[in-house]
Design a protein around this nucleic acid. Structure first.
Length: 893
RNA sequence: GGGCGAAUAGCUCAGCCUGGUUAGAGCGCCUGCCUUACAAGCAGGAAGUCGGGGGUUCAAAUCCCUCUUCGCCCACCA
């Protein structure tokens, strides 16, 4: 009934089915055996616990654009998908779930808990894959991997053993970041520092041999004093020189603390005396190492006070203990004062709990040897970052690389392949690719290390483990190294840098050549999208409302590389309108043009009597092809999208379609019709292809409607249009530029229209282009002039002055270009005035410049010439407007 | 404490590397149009001291210095 509905593009109708048909026909598959020129992307594996948010939407759209584009170009494009087991995150989710029935993982026991996590993963883990399909990602799903699946687990174990055998993995007691909520160690990267206002507490420690003398010590974490085992001063600090070697007494505890001299201490800061807490501060730990001091770990795994501390504090939460320690110090008169103090505090990147630096026995990877080739690859230009500045950040991190704590006190993850002999007197430790049965030293039973590996210890192998490593597979030979890696800046260190290191270490080559860093999607307050803030935008909701193509196009248009982009849920409609409107425009343009085409029209353009407008749009397509290709080559997605929008909307729709309207129905003869139809088919095929990587569903749907194309037609497999230069046509472009100016003249005409001031007169302009002919129709009577038209060089008005008459420049068919407008003469006069004023100002500037001797002497000749021409044209414009003004003036009463 | 980025129209952003048209786009806004592909449209229009200051230059949104505001990253000063 409602015909208007048909005029709207309904993406949901086509997207799902189309995707399945692509998938069913294996278009996304790559074959190693036949791959000649591979183009490979490995997906940053989303956490299995994740649901898609707009950040994924952006990242995966970028990757899909690249993959689809390269595939069309004839590359053997492979996009390897998969998910990450995300140790802590996933374990947390399942722990939370079982806690609803009052259970902890301890209640279940390790095996049952892990089983439970697997069940969870099996049930929900695939969601994100389905979501990626919904936004059109053309991954090779048959190569989907999971960081905890069998092959990748084998790779992880192989890597662990190799690094261990090479001496690059070691176990030791060091200060690590401990998350008390997750009850596990974290790597440095997993501890996020945030500024925090806390107190700087000044405490007096009495000297052991002179009880009435004190030294002042400042700390931000007073509860850690329970674990103090020394005080330290700078060796050159004269104030304390005589104290070195003597002892102080630890308040509240009574332990005697040696006073040592160490260069670490900054005599300028505070009192110049530092309390040394080796178990809870990395610097103190090092001081302790240099001075052979004991470490007292005063915290339990849950960050409660341990039994290493005086009884009164035991079992207290660390923050409660802090209050109590301060109260007790105050009562004893040992708290001198409290200053406000800004300092940065580490937080767990998964649960945001404040982490504690804590002495702990953990496994580490020695990173420096691995960093060396990774650093060199960047410096030699083999590894490129886009935008470039991220390369310097990478370089800085690599130069200051620190060992990587890889053990985690979790149950969900890759178990550390290390076994210890049950017989403590034997002390044997086995690091093995296969599970050993008994101690090779004494034959006793073995017990496996209870810990699992950092989740990134499997992700860092992703570019080659997904291709079959450690086996020498055809995939690995064909597709490694990969091409482009696309990700957000936040996992540059976690993942990107480590992949480069692993690539060199285990494959002898870098894992990818180009790293694309896109911006973070934020809300209007600049906050990252997150579930907890509730500001996330679900791409599926956007797909439902606007379609996947609209979402993809909008993201491409608004996402310059490396710059964050702001999206707000409230502005969803206004934000994605860009893409939706464009999709609709394309839909309607095709709805108009395609029915005119016959099968014969879709053949070669050779032999057609192409007219000016045909040659023009072909030429413009040529430019668009070249520019879009160049933009994609340099990862300028925003520009590619903008170019396509400009071409399709402003050139193809606004001009070409209007210009051929009169020809397609055969009104100007068969030759003209055929030329128009042929051009239309050719040009449509061209820009549908150029647009396909960004808007795959819509373009494919429309391409299949081109007569002569069967349902088997697919843009997915290409070919990508090539700018051959064949259609570059300066003459056509010049003529169309003239036509555009012609429309400008029409605008001027309206202002010169001889009507009463304030009258509103719709003016229809009839243009015969190709022929640059023009007609004006007045819908009400009145004199009708075409005076200005004659100024357009060739245009020779015929029958000027007659309503409905038209002027013909060259022979050609007539097209109808409606340019309806309303003129308010007063307004027009005011506009003219300000325009003249502006021009005169510019003119004065231009002449001043041209009279400036230093400009004439120093500026390059071509610049001077350009400026001279500019001044001339400004003068002409001014004169024309002045003339117009006087005409208008005469029209006024 | 170091480093990086951003600041251009009401909003979201291009342009800056490589200085030289009247600084652009989309959205929004105003005016007029349901013109036979599209009102998710068409035709017009208003709107910017390019964050402030200084410098280089014949010429600066663009290069240099500096300041301010916002954001990010790195860092073991208790």
């Amino acid at each position: 009934m409602d015909r208007q509905l048909d005029t709207k593009y309904d993406p949901t109708e086509v997207e799902g089915g189309l995707y399945r048909s692509w998938e069913d026909r294996g278009f996304f598959r790559a074959t190693a055996e036949t791959a000649q020129s591979p183009y490979v992307i490995v997906i940053p594996p989303p956490n299995v616990t994740n649901v898609l948010h707009m950040g994924h939407g952006l990242n995966n759209t970028l990757q899909d654009v690249l993959i689809r584009w390269r595939r069309m170009q004839g590359y053997d494009a492979l996009w390897v998908p998969g998910t990450d087991h995300a140790g802590i995150a996933t374990q947390n989710v399942v722990e939370r779930e079982i806690s609803e029935s009052g259970l902890t993982r301890m209640d279940l026991g390790r095996d049952a808990f892990v089983e439970r996590v697997w069940e969870w993963v099996d049930e929900y883990g695939g969601r994100i894959i389905e979501q990626l399909k919904a936004i059109g990602c053309s991954c090779d799903w048959e190569r989907t991997h999971f960081t905890l699946d069998e092959g990748l687990s084998r790779a992880v174990r192989e890597v662990f053993v190799r690094l261990y055998e090479k001496g690059l993995i070691y176990r030791g007691r060091y200060i690590i970041n401990w998350c008390p909520r997750c009850a596990t160690a974290l790597s440095n990267e997993e501890s996020e520092h945030r500024e925090h206002e806390g107190g700087l507490y000044h405490i007096r420690y009495p000297l052991a041999d002179r009880a009435d003398h004190f030294v002042e010590v400042a700390t931000t974490r007073p509860e850690t004093m329970l674990g103090d085992t020394a005080l330290a001063v700078h060796p050159g600090d004269e104030r304390y020189a005589e104290l070195v070697g003597s002892e102080a007494v630890l308040p509240l505890v009574g332990r005697h603390l040696p006073i040592v001299a160490d260069h670490y201490v900054d005599p300028e800061f505070g009192s110049g005396v530092v309390k040394v807490t080796p178990a809870h501060d990395p610097n103190d730990f090092e001081i302790a190492g240099r001075h052979d001091l004991p470490a007292v770990d005063i915290l339990t795994d849950q960050a409660r006070i341990s039994d290493q501390a005086p009884e009164t504090y035991r079992g207290m939460d660390r923050f409660e203990a802090r209050r109590r320690v301060l109260e007790d110090l105050e009562r004893e008169g040992a708290l001198i004062r409290t200053d406000k103090h800004m300092h940065s505090v580490g937080h767990c990147y998964r649960c945001d709990t404040v982490v504690e630096p804590r002495l702990s026995l953990q496994w580490f990877v020695r990173m420096e040897p691995l960093a060396e080739p990774a650093l060199r690859a960047y410096r030699e230009g083999k590894l490129r970052f886009h935008p470039e500045r991220y390369g310097r950040i990478y370089e800085h991190w690599m130069e200051n690389i620190r060992d990587w704590c890889i053990s985690r006190q979790l149950w969900w993850g890759h178990r550390i392949p290390v076994w210890y002999c049950r017989d403590e007197s034997c002390g044997e430790m086995v690091v093995s690719r296969e599970d050993p049965d008994e101690c090779p030293g004494c034959g006793a039973a073995l017990v496996q290390d209870p810990d699992v590996l950092d989740t990134w210890f499997s992700s860092w192998l992703w570019p080659f483990s997904t291709l079959g490593w450690p086996d020498d597979t055809p995939d690995l030979r064909a597709f490694y190294p990969t091409s482009t890696l696309s990700t957000a800046a936040e996992i540059l260190f976690f993942w990107v840098a480590r992949m480069v290191m692993a690539g060199y270490e285990f494959m002898g080559d870098l894992p990818f050549t180009d790293v694309l860093i896109h911006g973070t999607v934020r809300d209007h307050l600049g906050r990252r999208m997150s579930k907890s803030l509730g500001n996330g935008i679900d791409p599926l909701e956007v797909v439902e409302l606007f379609g996947a193509d609209a979402m993809r196009f909008t993201l491409m248009r608004g996402a310059p590389l490396g710059t964050d982009l702001q999206l707000n849920y409230e502005d969803l409609d206004s934000a994605f309108r860009v893409g939706r409107n464009f999709a609709n425009k394309i839909w309607n343009a095709s709805r108009f043009s395609l029915p005119y085409l016959t099968e014969q029209d879709t053949g070669s353009l050779a032999g057609q009597q192409l007219e000016l407008s045909d040659r023009w749009i072909l030429s413009r397509l040529e430019h668009a092809t070249r520019d879009v290709t160049a933009a994609l080559e340099e990862f300028r997605f925003q520009e590619a999208a903008e170019l396509l929008q400009g071409f399709v909307w402003n050139e193809y729709c606004d001009w070409y379609l209007e210009l051929v309207k009169g020809r397609l129905d055969g009104g100007r003869g068969e030759a003209s019709r055929a030329a128009a139809a042929g051009t239309l088919a050719f040009v449509s095929r061209g820009w549908l292809r150029l647009l396909h990587p960004i808007m795959p569903f819509l373009t494919e749907t429309l391409a299949r409607k081109i007569p002569g194309e069967s349902d088997e037609t697919t843009l997915v497999m290409g070919p990508w249009p090539i700018a051959t230069g064949e259609w570059s046509d300066p003459e056509a472009e010049g003529a169309l530029a003239e036509l555009q100016e012609f429309v400008g003249v029409v605008r001027n005409l309206r202002s010169e229209y001889n009507v009463d001031p304030g009258a509103r007169v719709p003016v229809h302009v009839r243009i015969q282009s190709d022929s640059l002919a023009l007609a004006l129709q007045a819908e009400q009577d009145g004199a009708f002039r075409l005076a200005r038209i004659g100024e357009l060089g060739d245009i020779a008005p015929q029958d000027a002055g007659e309503p409905g008459a038209h002027a013909v420049l060259r022979s050609g068919s007539e097209v109808f270009l409606p340019l309806t407008g309303v003129i308010d003469l007063d307004q027009e006069r005011a506009r003219l005035e300000s325009e003249i004023e502006r021009l005169e100002k510019l003119l004065r500037g231009a002449w001043a410049k041209l009279e400036n001797p230093s400009f004439l002497e120093r500026a390059p000749a071509e610049i001077v010439e350009r400026e001279r021409e500019k001044a001339m044209s400004l003068g002409e414009q001014r004169d024309r407007l002045v003339g117009k003004r006087s005409e208008l003036g005469s029209a006024a009463p």
